[in-house]
Design a protein around this nucleic acid. Structure first.
Length: 593
RNA sequence: GGGGCCGUCGUUCAGCCUGGUUUAGGACGCCAGAUUGUCAAUCUGGAGGUCGCGGGUUCAAAUCCCGUCGGCCCCGCCA
């Protein structure tokens, strides 16, 4: 290696030194007798000067340089002539007067400019990901991700955690997301699954005496993608023995505060607010509220009972709710703007959306104003003022909450209520243990089947499962679910009760989870843990709007890699070895490849 | 599985609603020449597109219709 410095580090302190730099041609400005080249590497940009008077042969070579050529240059660091400094560059005070040039590799004209100002479509960026990654922004995000990982490892190492790897080829289990399957060649007709998370292994590690485990664990879920969801992603996964919920929450608060401080200079101050599931659903209509703006859901159920509006009264009388949002200054909304809100509410599952403008002197403007008493409404909505718009959903409580929760989130963005400089972490605790799945006609675990119920709710387990709360907790940051965890079940008897409640037959439980039950019977410590989404954390810290920006080689919404073309058909011989036959439909599907 | 937005020289965008003077245009990039202090260099000249693909309507389709492929956002899904 012959380079002596990086392109971001030369300053006036180096003036007079002979240096060698290497990198990519970021731009060229040819003035005839003198050619300026911006040389770029991971660390920055340095201006090179090829002067025909000073060094004719180097100048002649430099005439051939084009964008993205890979070169190595030797020259002398010099102060730029007064007035020609570039304040936008860290190296803007100096330049390197080239005496020798080596062209390591020419480059064809790139399909898009390696530059942060002009951006190509994402499809093109992904196809030529190596060009995209050369952009300073992407370099910054890759480095940030490394720094976050490093800070996490260092923090947990200092607290006695062991980083332990768990299998990627593992066992498919019921419940949860769709598995990615891998056929076994030596065991015809059987399959491994890629882990959705190392959940069972980390519990087994506790039973194995590991005490404190962590892993930056790659996880795989074959579900549809979102801007914050990729089919393979990385979790900061950890588990501890002999702990209670509070131990985990405190540890993670310290972890997050330190990581944010060290990697982004961000100051978070623990303890984070702890809101129960019921509280956040009531107040924000979602289990991952963005607390950077207020706009809480209001409850008009009591008011509705007294009104003469049948839709409202009916909703409450049949066990539902009337929920509302008070939109500040919303009375100025145009009719089409309001219609848009109504349409969205319907999209989100509500039967309709009632709206009331509050005019001067609390005169109500609305198609349904005649049903309401302004004074009573004013009393029910202490936050409402003249000039506001009230929107209401009367439905089952969950539909009313969800609909307005989603509208709240959209309005937060559209009305620019979000204080973007704020960082608002919170814990959501006291989740219900189960919810009823109407399709499957059975109870399913809200978190997962290994989550311990609250001890005081155990008496209701069989009689009123929906009333049972779990020792589960989610960490939410700025409206994103950053992670979740729980205190686990360490009693084999309780674990059997839960399986049975979930309708997992004993024979199935034995086949799928027999190893866990058996392990619990052989001396399992109380334990609990959590997993945080590393990609989402880096995305938030990096201030970028897509998880794809913090993954070096992400997949598209159809779960394809545009760089390599994965997934792709394989040779029939490979399939034969694996004892796999394709259906007619699958063969048709391959023709696109 | 469903809803929405998008696809036009290498790139990015206009044109599409209201089909025909558009030989499909601008900017960036590219090529050639000029140019000794630029950093969005500049000046002169030039090349480059069967408008994602297939079908239909029409005298005539980038433009209207249907289908399809691809990208993005959302619902469902994500213990």
């Amino acid at each position: 290696m012959t380079r002596t410095h990086r392109c971001g580090e030369l300053t006036r302190a180096h003036v007079g030194q002979t240096v060698t730099l290497a990198g990519w041609v970021h731009g060229r400005r040819d003035h005839g007798g003198v050619i300026f080249i911006d040389l770029r590497d991971r660390e920055g940009i340095t201006q090179l000067v090829f002067d025909s008077d000073a060094n004719l042969s180097a100048h002649q070579q430099a005439e051939h340089l084009r964008d993205e050529y890979v070169i190595e240059v030797t020259g002398v660091v010099a102060l730029r002539p007064p007035g020609s400094e570039n304040p936008h560059l860290s190296t803007g005070e100096i330049e390197v007067r080239a005496t020798a040039l080596r062209i390591w590799n020419a480059a064809k004209t790139p399909p898009f400019s390696v530059d942060d100002t002009i951006h190509a479509t994402e499809a093109l960026r992904l196809k030529y990901r190596y060009l995209d990654l050369r952009r300073p922004t992407m370099q910054r995000l890759l480095a940030l991700r490394h720094h976050v990982s490093f800070a996490v490892r260092s923090f947990l190492h200092e607290r006695g955690f062991l980083e332990i790897e768990t299998p990627i080829l593992t066992k498919s289990t019921p419940e949860g997301a769709r598995d990615y399957l891998v056929p076994s060649r030596v065991n015809p007709g059987t399959f491994y699954a890629l882990p959705q998370s190392p959940q069972l292994f980390k519990q087994i590690l506790m039973i194995g005496g590991a005490d404190r485990y962590f892993q930056l664990a790659r996880c795989f879920r074959d579900e549809d993608l979102r801007l914050d969801r990729q089919p393979e992603f990385t979790q900061i996964d950890l588990e501890m023995s002999f702990v209670e919920r509070e131990d985990i929450l405190t540890l993670i608060e310290a972890l997050l505060a330190e990581v944010c401080q060290r990697t982004a200079g961000l100051h978070l101050s623990p303890p984070f607010p702890r809101l129960t599931y019921d509280e956040v659903m009531n107040r924000y209509g979602t289990d991952k509220p963005d607390l950077r703006f207020d706009l809480p859901l209001e409850d008009l159920s009591d008011f509705a009972k007294t009104s003469s509006f049948n839709v409202f009264r009916h909703a409450v009388e049949t066990g539902g709710s009337v929920k509302a949002l008070v939109i500040p200054q919303g009375a100025g909304f145009s009719r089409s703007r309001i219609d848009q809100l109504v349409d969205r509410a319907k999209e989100f599952g509500a039967k309709g959306l009632a709206w009331i403008k509050i005019g001067e002197g609390w005169k109500l403007e609305s198609a349904i104003a005649k049903f309401f008493d302004a004074t009573a409404l004013q009393k029910a909505l202490p936050r409402a003022h003249v000039g506001d718009l009230v929107i209401c959903v009367a439905d089952s409580t969950s539909v009313a909450q969800q609909t307005l929760g989603r509208l709240r989130s959209r309005l937060g963005t559209e009305l620019q209520l979000i204080e973007t400089s704020q960082w608002k972490p919170l814990w959501v605790i006291d989740f219900p243990m189960f919810e009823y799945d109407e399709e499957a006609k059975r109870y399913v675990a809200l978190h997962h089947p290994f989550t311990s119920p609250m001890p005081e709710d155990l008496p209701h387990l069989e009689t009123d499962p929906l009333r049972v709360r779990a020792q589960a907790y989610d960490l939410v940051l700025n409206g994103f679910e950053l992670g979740g965890g729980s205190i686990r079940i360490h009693s084999p008897a309780l674990q059997r009760r839960i399986f049975s409640l979930l309708g997992i037959a004993q024979s199935e439980a034995a086949e799928k989870f027999g190893f866990l039950i058996e392990a619990l019977e052989l001396g399992a410590p109380p334990h609990g843990g959590i997993a945080l989404g590393l990609d989402r954390l880096v995305m938030l810290l990096g201030g970028t709007e897509s998880i794809r920006d913090v993954i070096a080689f992400p997949k598209t919404q159809k779960a394809q890699c545009l760089l390599t073309g994965a997934p792709s058909p394989v040779d029939p011989e490979q399939l034969q070895e694996l004892h796999i036959a394709l259906t007619r439909e699958a063969e048709d599907g391959q023709e696109g490849h």
